[in-house]
Amino acid sequence: MNHEKTLGRNVFWGHRITGLLILGYLYLHLVLLSAILSPLGSQHFNAVASVVERPPFIAADMVLFAIILFHAVNGIRLILADFGLMIRENRFAIWTAMTIVAVMVFIASLVMFPDLLR
């Protein structure tokens, strides 16, 4: 039985999955902080910091930023819907939210990778 997935449903699953990913990242964040703050890890603090500032890690940071931003902007859209706003204009609201996410991720990547501007 094939059933066409409406836009709202696809975005809902995106919201759930990004939410779970962010929750997972929270624990990764705590583990990393604990590791570098413990007496064993603290002597490697600067080494860890220099690794984390390499481009692949910054690119991973941008992916994380995009995930958080998607969850945040879509969350704003859902809260607006809870106040009865943008319900009939649902598709427009979703595409607007996605555009905002794309533009903000683009701006943020220019900030994080200033070499791209040169």
Binding site: L30, L33, S34, L37, S38, P39, L40
Partner: peptide, 19 residues
């Protein structure tokens, strides 16, 4: 509690539980 322990480390220079 884990997060508070991490913040505690900045005040008292060592975490409470994590070694």
């Amino acid at each position: 509690i884990w997060g508070l322990d991490i913040l505690w480390a900045f005040w008292y220079h060592h975490p409470f539980f994590v070694v």
